[in-house]
Design a protein around this nucleic acid. Structure first.
Lengths: 225, 225
DNA sequence: TAAAGTATGATTGTATACAATAATACAGGA
DNA sequence: TCCTGTATTATTGTATACAATCATACTTTA
C-alpha cells in the first residue's frame, strides 16, 4: 500500500464519517446486524453520538461496498449473501488470486517476502497449538500480503473487497476444523513458488487454494438456502 | 438485470442525489471534468440547482466507483487512469469476461440470445456504412448483454464497473479506426459459441477479444504516461 | 530581502430544521 | 366482516446554519 493511501486511510478514521463507516461495517461483519436488518439513520447516529449527516454518507459508501442495500425513501437493509453469491465469488477469486500470485512472483519486495515467510512459519506454529484465533488472523494477513505484493492497485483493491465480503462466511469455517493444516500447507507451497519466482506454479496453486477453500465451506454446509 | 434492480435504478434517477450522481459521472466520463480537476460541492450544487447535501452524498459514491478521490478536509479530485491501470484492468477483464462467457453459455435466455444476434447483425450493418456512433453504442450493449446473460449478480456488477471505468479510454479507440470490423467478427464468434452452448470456446474467444482490444489501445498510443 | 507569524477568505465537516414520502392505525361504509 | 379512504406518525430527503480546517496573502521582524 502506498504512503498516500495509508495516510488517507488514517485520516479517514479520524473523521466522524470515517469512524461511523468503519463501526457499522465492523458490526455487520461481526454479525451484530444481521441479514435484512433495517438500519435507521437516527438510531445509529444516537448510538454513536453523531448526527444523521455522517451516518447517511457512511450508508452511501456501505451500499457500494455491497454490505447494505438502500431503498429510496424507505431505508437501509443489511444485504444477504446467498449461497450462489459465495459460489460465484470463490470462482471469481480463484481466477484473480491466481493472477495475483503470478504478478506477486515478479513484483514482491524483500520485505513482503520476509513477512510472508514469517506468516507461514507462525501459522504452522499456532496450528500445532490449536490457537484458532491467531490462525484466522494470520490467514487473513497471508492473503493481504499477497494482494499487496502483486503491485497492482486495481487487483489489490478488488481482492480486498471480496476478501472482506466473504469474511462473514469464512469466520465460521476457519475456527473449528481440520482445514487449518491443509490450508497452511497450501500457503507454504504458494509462498515457495513465489520465492522461486515461478509465476505459473504460484498461479496454479493459488487457484487451487481457493477452490479447495470453497469445497470445504460447501461440505461443511455452512451456507444457508 | 433483475426487476428489483431495475426498479431501484429508475427510482434512483428521480431522487436529487441520484440525478446529481449520474450527472457528475457522465460529465467525468465524457471528459467535461478532466484528470485532477477539483470538484467543489457548492459550485456543482449551484450548477444543478441543489444544495451541497446531495452533492456530498454523490461524491461519496463516486469515490467508491473510483471516478473521484476525496482528500479529507481538502476536496474531491477526478482520478487519473494510468496506463498501468488500464493494462491491469484489461488483464483482469480478460479472465472475467472469459468466465462470464462460459457461464452465459449455460444460462443465457432466449430473449438475450435473440438480442445478442440482433446486436451482431446490426453492428455489421453499421460497420459497412461507417456509422461510428452506432457501432460504439452496439459494442457497449453487446458486452452488457453478455454480463446480464451470465446470471451472476456478482460478476455482472463487477464487469459493468470495469466496463464503465475504461469507457474514457475506449471511447477514443472505437471511434476512428479499423478495429471495428475485427471486433465485430470476434463478437460474432463469441455469439455463435454461446449459441452452441460451447462454454469452453466462448470463454477462450472472450479472453482473446479483450487481449486484442488492449493490444489495439496500446498500439494506438492512446495511453498517456 | 527573507522568513515566520498572523489574519482573512474559501472550502469542507457536521448539526439541525424543514419538506417529502411511506407505513400504520383507525374510522366509516358496503 | 372486509374493504377503502384518511389521518397520524415515523423515517428518509434536502436545505441551511454553523464549526473546523486549509490555503492564501499580508504584515511584521530580524
Amino acid at each position: 500500500m502506498s504512503d498516500y493511501n495509508l495516510k488517507e486511510e488514517v485520516t479517514d478514521k479520524y473523521s466522524l464519517r470515517g469512524r461511523v463507516f468503519h463501526k457499522i461495517r465492523e458490526d455487520i461483519l461481526n454479525g451484530k446486524y444481521k441479514e435484512n436488518d433495517e438500519l435507521r439513520e437516527a438510531a445509529i447516529g444516537d448510538e454513536l453520538g453523531v448526527s444523521r449527516t455522517p451516518v447517511r454518507e457512511a450508508f452511501r459508501q456501505l451500499e457500494l461496498e455491497g454490505l447494505i442495500r438502500i431503498v429510496p425513501n424507505k431505508g437501509a437493509y443489511v444485504t444477504g449473501i446467498t449461497s450462489k453469491d459465495v459460489a460465484d465469488i470463490y470462482m471469481i477469486r480463484s481466477l484473480l488470486e491466481g493472477l495475483c500470485a503470478e504478478w506477486a512472483s515478479e513484483h514482491i519486495t524483500e520485505e513482503q517476502m520476509q513477512e510472508m515467510e514469517e506468516n507461514v512459519y507462525l501459522s504452522e506454529f499456532h496450528a500445532g497449538k490449536g490457537h484458532t484465533e491467531q490462525i484466522a488472523v494470520l490467514d487473513n494477513r497471508f492473503h493481504e500480503i499477497l494482494y499487496e505484493a502483486c503491485d497492482s492497485k486495481m487487483l489489490e483493491h478488488l481482492l480486498k473487497d471480496f476478501h472482506q465480503y466473504v469474511y462473514r462466511v469464512r469466520k465460521q469455517t476457519l475456527s473449528q476444523d481440520s482445514r487449518g493444516n491443509a490450508s497452511n500447507h497450501e500457503h507454504r507451497e504458494i509462498m515457495e513458488a513465489i520465492k522461486a519466482h515461478d509465476g505459473e506454479r504460484a498461479a496454479e496453486l493459488a487457484k487451487l487454494h481457493m477452490l479447495k477453500a470453497y469445497e470445504n465451506i460447501k461440505q461443511k454446509g455452512l451456507l444457508k438456502e
